[in-house]
Design a binder for these strands. Structure first.
Length: 494
RNA sequence: GGCGCCAUGGUGCAACGGUUAGCACAUCGCCCUUUCAAGGCGGUAAUGCGGGUUCGAUUCCCGCUGGCGCUACCA
């Protein structure tokens, strides 16, 4: 028997959009905490807003979570399939007097009755400030008779929580510390909508209780809501879990991340060709640190070092250049065998993958070549981009490279001679390749660099690539000779 | 408007009463060099403002300012 129960945490996205970096970071923290503490990571989909949910987005969210390597232990559970529980809880609360039916018409936004549009800012300037006090709802004080009358008239009722008129509600946040708010500041929030669907407040609490969640790790935007939930826990007779609110991730302009900040979805980073390892490492350091100066942390190290104590209280600005730096670091430092599958996937998608690279000598060649190319890559698609000539004969000569390295008129003769020299080479190795080229340069009284750069463009099509002679080895003698000859007609006339 | 949270270079984090305020990204320069990266070395750059408390404040307290969050029958 364990005295301390296994910690249970959860990530609870709602399918109103794709998984964005803020949600991803929250999911990551929960996952890290669960892994570190030997706990359970639960996934729950909060889809109770029938109007705004898009069920088709759920798959994308799960896919992003999988891409990040954040495997959940239980779920996904869907709130839309657990509606009876919330109704029962609402009824129980109403029966005990902790909640009451409200017959008011739903307050509307901006005159309409739709939810506020995603991207529209709150009205600028001195618009009518809202002052929703619980006293604003007359239903709180309705007599039993008046309620019966409303019912007879068939007015649909929402269920509101009866917030105490005095006193204060407090809780201890694992990140933000002791928190206390006056109950008079809390409005009588809705538990069940008049259509019978639960609101977020009821849903989370009922589910977190039912799923025996011990630590609620979520965005700091919920800090202000937490007292309501603490009140709910008490009304339900259950001890609240540990709350740990993590700071928000902001866009470069220090406002909340949104579409107009460009790429904010996890999916877009996957598509761009970032490595999940790098993405995770980068995200882990937004709002959290080990306390020391080490930033390059493998997943194992992340798990080993993660603690709620290290979580910051300051919002963080998403810094893409640093993400890119992490990516290049992982691209060149991660074990080659871990990188290979990613490169394979990218090549396959580009139609460049050959099955012969999957095993035996082909696999060895593939590993060596990827290893040769990777120091210069920034994103996965680079392997099928500027480095494609390593994997296919179908490539063009980059315009910028031609104008920069194919200026010299004598190149036509020079490369023809070089091609002949390479064709005649008995042994194809680095030093032999280099000797042929340097000897030619000396004999023709041109700089070796001229030939090296021109040759690079000829055999790889680009001006920026790995060291020439190593590239030649990767391509093999036949290819190098053929590509040299193929390039000659494209060289400037002499 | 009300309530709350936050505040170290451009950015992410350190320093949890005493450091020449540290590290990383970005940026600038140098080295290396076969293009371009990587790598090495070095430079520029921060405690928002004003009061306290203290022998001593980045650190503790108050005010201001700024940013953010909540204030929905959204989550």
């Amino acid at each position: 028997m364990n005295i301390a129960p296994r910690p249970r945490v959860r990530f609870a996205p709602s399918p109103t959009g794709y998984l964005h970096v803020g949600g991803a970071r929250t999911a990551l923290f929960n996952w890290l905490y669960a892994r570190r503490q030997g706990g359970v990571f639960v996934l729950r989909v909060e889809d109770t807003d029938a109007g705004r949910n898009k069920p088709e987005l759920v798959d994308g969210i799960l896919e992003s979570l999988r891409w990040m390597g954040l495997a959940w232990d239980e779920g996904p559970f869907f709130q839309s399939q657990r509606l009876e529980m919330y109704r029962a809880a609402g009824a129980q609360l109403a029966a005990s007097g902790a909640a009451y039916p409200c017959y008011c018409a739903p307050s509307s936004y901006g005159g309409g009755d739709a939810a506020p549009p995603d991207e529209v800012e709150a009205p600028a300037g001195g618009e009518a400030p809202r002052q929703a006090r619980k006293s604003a709802c007359p239903c709180r004080k309705l007599s039993g008779e008046e309620r019966a009358e409303k019912q007879r008239q068939g007015v649909a009722a929402a269920i509101r929580f009866r917030v105490p008129e005095s006193g204060a509600t407090s809780f201890d946040d694992a990140v933000f510390g002791a928190r206390e708010v006056q109950n008079e500041e809390i409005e009588d929030f809705v538990l069940l909508r008049s259509n019978g669907l639960p609101t977020y407040q009821l849903g989370v609490v009922v589910d977190d209780i039912d799923m025996r969640i011990t630590h609620v790790i979520r965005g700091a935007d919920h800090l202000s809501n937490t007292p309501k939930q603490v009140l709910l826990y008490r009304a339900l007779g259950v001890a609240p879990p540990v709350f740990a609110h993590v700071p928000l991730i902001l866009g470069p302009d220090r406002t909340r991340m949104s579409k107009r900040h460009g790429a904010t979805s996890v999916e877009s980073y996957a598509t761009e060709g970032f490595l999940p390892e790098a993405f995770r490492n980068f995200l882990a350091l937004m709002g959290w640190s080990t306390g020391d100066d080490i930033e390059f942390l493998t997943t194992a190290a992340l798990i080993d070092k993660f603690s709620l104590e290290g979580v910051s209280r300051t919002n963080a600005v998403f810094d893409r250049p640093k993400l890119e730096w992490f990516n290049t670091q992982y691209l060149q430092k991660m074990p080659i065998e871990s990188l290979l599958p990613y490169v394979q996937a990218v090549l396959r998608r580009a139609g460049l993958w050959k099955e012969e690279w999957a095993s035996g000598a082909g696999q060895e060649w593939f590993a060596r070549t990827v290893d040769l190319v990777r120091p210069r890559t920034r994103l996965l698609p680079d392997f099928a981009g500027w480095a494609r000539a390593f994997f296919t004969d179908q490539f063009d000569y980059e315009e910028a490279a031609r104008t920069k390295f194919w200026k010299e008129p004598r190149l036509k003769d020079l490369l023809a001679t070089l091609a002949a020299g390479y064709a005649a080479l008995a042994e194809w190795n680095h030093d032999a390749c280099e000797k042929v080229l340097r000897d030619l340069a000396a004999a023709q009284n041109v700089k070796a660099g001229l030939l090296i750069n021109a040759t690079r463009v000829a055999i790889l099509g680009v001006g920026v690539a790995p060291p020439l002679f190593e590239s030649m080895l990767a391509l093999g003698q036949d290819r190098v000779v053929a590509r040299l000859r193929r390039a000659i007609p494209h060289l400037p006339p002499n």
